[in-house]
Amino acid sequence: MIVERLIIADNQPLTAYAVEALSRSVAQEIHIEDLEIAYAQNKTQLNNLLRDGKKTAVVVDYTMFDFTNQENFTIVCDLYQNTSCWLLLSEELTPNFLRYVVYQTQNVGVAYKDASLDSMREALHYVMTGVRYISQQATQILLQKAAEAENRRDELTHTEREILKAIALGKTTKEIAADRFSSVHTINSHRKNIFRKLGVNCVHDAIKYALRAGLVDESEFFI
């Protein structure tokens, strides 16, 4: 998908103008004639621009924009998934948000404002041809966090590993408490500790860890 338009959604004028200048240069390299460039100062303006269905690349600084949370941001991205390719351009993204964007979206890439000029040109080349771009810096952060999570396996106590296995097998908190002759409060405390040690925020991610760590056999899980 070669885009017809680039939307710059960044409230820092210097950054926005620099992105525009670099984008026009990249557009010439990939033979995009008369690239339309538009600016959005808030989510409402961005939605209004995207509604016309034009093939669009969106460069946005999430931290400088008026999205209330990561879910709010990804809803907008998903809404225009067939007509837009996004590049998150920011100075800092939390590892949790970065992981969420990379694993929960299909059309959102990531680059950092302190990247080299060549890296920024590469990122814009990708997004303007409809290809998702994940920078090397973002990839390294994700790999580091994955390695840290894997190392946390040894930090789980025997009880926590058993409870994690029970969670992965689909048992409810009440069922686990009954099986272990414990209170629901105790199981919830173990559950919170497991999530904290693994660096996850939901049951789905905890189950994926349990499968990778061999705590649950896939044949058991899919029964």
Rank of each mutant, 00 (worst) to 15 (best):
R5F: 11
R5M: 13
L6M: 07
I7S: 04
A9V: 03
A9Y: 01
P13V: 08
P13N: 07
T15G: 12
V19W: 02
V19Q: 02
L22G: 05
R24F: 10
R24E: 14
S25H: 10
V26N: 01
V26D: 00
Q28L: 13
E29M: 11
I30V: 11
H31M: 13
E33I: 08
E36T: 07
Y39V: 03
N42L: 08
T44M: 08
N47W: 11
N48W: 10
L49G: 06
L49K: 08
L49V: 10
A57R: 00
A57E: 02
V58K: 01
Y62W: 07
T63N: 11
F65D: 00
F67Q: 02
F67T: 02
T68L: 01
N69A: 00
N72K: 00
N72H: 06
Y80W: 07
N82T: 14
C85W: 07
W86F: 09
W86E: 00
S90T: 15
N96Y: 04
V102L: 07
T105Y: 00
T105P: 01
N107D: 11
V108D: 03
V110E: 05
K113C: 10
K113N: 09
A115N: 14
S116Q: 09
L117G: 06
A123P: 01
A123G: 05
G130D: 03
V131N: 14
S135A: 12
Q137H: 14
T139C: 10
T139N: 13
Q140E: 15
Q140Y: 12
I141C: 03
A147W: 10
E148S: 08
E148N: 07
E150F: 11
L156Q: 04
T157K: 12
T157E: 11
T157I: 10
T157C: 12
T159L: 14
E162K: 12
E162R: 08
A166D: 06
I167N: 03
A168V: 01
L169R: 01
G170V: 04
T173M: 07
I176H: 00
A178Q: 09
S183N: 10
T186G: 06
I187H: 02
N188R: 14
H190Q: 12
R191Q: 12
N193W: 06
N193L: 14
L198W: 05
H204L: 13
H204C: 08
D205F: 05
A206N: 01
Y209K: 08
Y209Q: 08
L211W: 03
L215N: 03
L215D: 00
L215Q: 01
V216I: 08
F221L: 09
I223H: 15
